[in-house]
Design a protein around this nucleic acid. Sequence first.
DNA 1: GATCCATTACTCGGATAATACATGTCCGAGTATTTGCGG
DNA 2: CCGCAAATACTCGGACATGTATTATCCGAGTAATGGATC
Lengths: 153, 153
Amino acid sequence: MSKGVEWALHTLLNLDVVGGGPVGSAQLAEAHGLSPSYLNKQLQLLARAELVVSVPGPRGGFRLAKPLEAITLLDVVEAIEGGTELFHCTEIRCGGKIGELSPPPTGRCAVNAAMRRAEEAWHQALAAQSLADIRTELTASPLVRQVVRSALN
Amino acid sequence: MSKGVEWALHTLLNLDVVGGGPVGSAQLAEAHGLSPSYLNKQLQLLARAELVVSVPGPRGGFRLAKPLEAITLLDVVEAIEGGTELFHCTEIRCGGKIGELSPPPTGRCAVNAAMRRAEEAWHQALAAQSLADIRTELTASPLVRQVVRSALN
DNA sequence: GATCCATTACTCGGATAATACATGTCCGAGTATTTGCGG
DNA sequence: CCGCAAATACTCGGACATGTATTATCCGAGTAATGGATC
């Protein structure tokens, strides 16, 4: 799984602490010692998913498009990873000797169905948690908020 | 997620249909039109995980080490993928300005904890399904078994 | 005819390339700010 | 002093290298079967 998901999650939480004003990707990257250009790429993915809005020009940057209560872990993962399909069925049952000897398959591949069930459980667990829940256990102490604000000027 | 998981699952199911006799990796690969050498690599991973046993020499090959009832989807995924960690926390909270200004973190990273919860749901769903369950819905008709047996000589 | 042994052919096993994807970097398009000029 | 316009600096946005993990391939080590020679 891509490392950008971790970057995106922490960055979204930081954006919430700061407040409404847009913050540049360079500052957001410096806050965690990340590659500015690459974080910018992830932020653009978040912008396409309408999780953040980009403000061009001087004093521009990114700000949250929704409150954290409206952003789930699944939203972020799908925004960064694109297709969330962990297990991709290539229908190997239709190839080789078995595929030639068998009639065209009628239902879905049983292997695929089983893996999809597990993946569905993952999706539900991701969708059940919002970033607001993480904020609750992360920034319980006011000290953390203060540090984040001072780190982002 | 690696493509080898799909190959391994189908191959294990085919090994069950055949019965006890060892089957060579070349035949198993030809059954689904796969790369023989690469499938062999996956089978070695399954052998290290004690899901199959390898028999060297002529008339050798691989056979199941356990009945399908004792093999879960999680066993196969862990055997092929090694570390099953979907989300790997790199502790970026300890780097950059925020890391420098903050005191050493006490508990676990809240972001990591949330992702772990979702991953745990995935693991449980994988562990809850055995290959015997898949066999039930896959080889319901005797025709399928017959095709597999004839494809593997 | 049975037994033993050397040969043989076939399989696994791991070391070795080719490829695709994630990671990281760079420069151009666009805009709000700033600055200088004219009224 | 106020309004306007041109220049400017700063930001996003996407196109371009690099590193790494997956995918694919090849050849050697080891073993059971096989064939022949011997008792």
